[in-house]
Design a protein around this nucleic acid. Structure first.
Lengths: 158, 158
DNA sequence: ATTGAAAGTGAGCTTTC
DNA sequence: GAAAGCTCACTTTCAAT
């Protein structure tokens, strides 16, 4: 990841990002019209944003519940010791567990926050017992059920 | 959101979702070829997945650092009391704060986990003090810096 | 740097097997 | 569910302001 170039974004760029962050399927034509730009100009700006790495990629978001995993949780993971290589190896292992959506490596009381979506409580327990606490470096875990998850206003809120 | 229809997904659907979850920009043609399907069949499948709500939407992912917010954190929020309406109102308020990426409403020691991306430590402090602890229902917060955030294997790992 | 116009490509639709 | 052909619209490229 060589994305050290200073942002250098103007108002138009920010507006483009704001739209695409909510819906990446808008056509270039519609995007241009919405922002009062020529289509060629708009397409050029978007391509530039991609080339500069401001836009990293675009992905679909799936309905976890419809996919059979209606139960979400955050599993806090605390380590016994914090020797570098072992921590990195655990990070990799956690991110590779099926049904894991995100893994936060954090500084503080906990070391990792593992966000999972599972079928039921049994599957949740299996992940904790079979995939997490099995690692010797893991001192303990604490699981919090997720009632609801919302998107925030984000970086582009005016 | 009326997405109660049982999933009813076969192997092909899952493979389509797996690809689009990593890169939603693949053309229908390339997707079809990659999975050994006719283009018409592939297009039909994808449309069906959208109509059924399995695919919720598609979004770009931006480089937060390039956008001037290189510092991420998780702010744990604990409440004094848990009366329904106030909790919901706070949820709305948290999700509406600029620079907030996600808000988890969880069951457990904490009530909310607020994921933010900010410019520096000062901006982080300002969010906590000016936007979170100002609410009377908030009993306390605890902030954890995010060293690194990784995508997990997800729901479609075989 | 933005614009307008022309050319290449993919998506969406219908029919057919 | 798969294949073929058709139309339309979009992206891209280029020359010009």
């Amino acid at each position: 990841m060589v994305t050290l170039a200073k942002a250098q974004l103007d108002e138009v760029d920010l507006e483009i990002l704001a739209v695409l962050t909510r819906d990446a399927e808008v056509t270039n034509k519609a995007l241009a019209r919405g922002l009062g730009l020529a289509e060629s100009t708009c397409a050029h700006r978007v391509r530039s944003l991609r080339e500069r790495g401001i836009i990293r990629d675009t992905r679909i978001r799936v309905d976890e519940a419809a996919l059979g995993s209606p139960l979400q949780a955050i599993i806090k993971v605390r380590l016994a010791n914090h020797t570098g290589p072992k921590v990195t190896a655990l990070f990799d292992a956690l991110a590779g567990i099926p049904r894991v959506l995100q893994v936060f490596h954090v500084a503080g009381v906990d070391d990792f926050l593992v966000h999972v979506a599972v079928q039921d409580a049994t599957a949740l327990r299996d992940i904790v017992l079979e995939h997490i606490t099995v690692h010797p470096v893991v001192r303990g875990t604490e699981t919090q059920l997720v009632f609801e998850l919302r998107d925030g206003a984000g970086l582009l809120a005016r």
